[in-house]
């Protein structure tokens, strides 16, 4: 690619990033880094997000690492009797939690594509993750 081509591409990326940044403002960013079954961290993180939204706060979710698997369709209760998280995730829209970010690198590492997930998501780069952390008043990591 020519030098000019690179410059143009970089410019477009910055513009796209700025567009996303303006969408990403909010009161609370909940980062979910654990899958649905190994621990209760995912559920307890989602609970915080729902409570904040119920109190009228603007909430965004960021799924990182194995946390991305939470969004794979069909996360049911399973034979262990743990409470599944699919039902909670399906309620997000009702609570006006519509900004669902997923870590692009983790999606790649896990062999997942946006079309494998049960809800519409925005894939984000490390730079966009960094930006999201600065554009939310509070960040909580689970």
């Amino acid at each position: 690619m020519s030098k000019r081509g690179f410059a143009k591409e970089a410019e477009e990326e910055v513009r796209a990033m700025n567009d996303t940044q303006t969408d990403l403002q909010g009161d609370l960013l909940v980062i979910l880094r654990h899958g649905p079954h190994g621990s209760s961290l995912l559920r307890e993180g989602l609970d915080m997000a729902l409570v904040a939204a119920a109190f009228g706060r603007r909430v965004s979710l960021l799924f990182m690492g194995t946390g991305c698997t939470a969004l794979v369709s069909g996360q049911g209760q399973g034979p262990l009797g743990q409470k599944g998280t699919q039902a909670t995730l399906n309620m997000l829209e009702m609570y006006d939690i519509e900004t669902l970010l997923v870590e692009s690198e983790a999606m790649h590492a896990l062999g997942l594509k946006a079309c494998d997930l049960s809800l519409p998501v925005i894939e984000v780069s490390p730079a966009q993750i960094q930006a999201a952390m600065t554009t939310h008043r509070l960040v909580a990591t689970f």
Binding site: M48, V51, A52, L138
Partner: peptide
């Protein structure tokens, strides 16, 4: 959990 959100903010 509302207390946690308030605390953080």
């Amino acid at each position: 959990l509302g207390q946690l959100v308030d605390l953080g903010l």
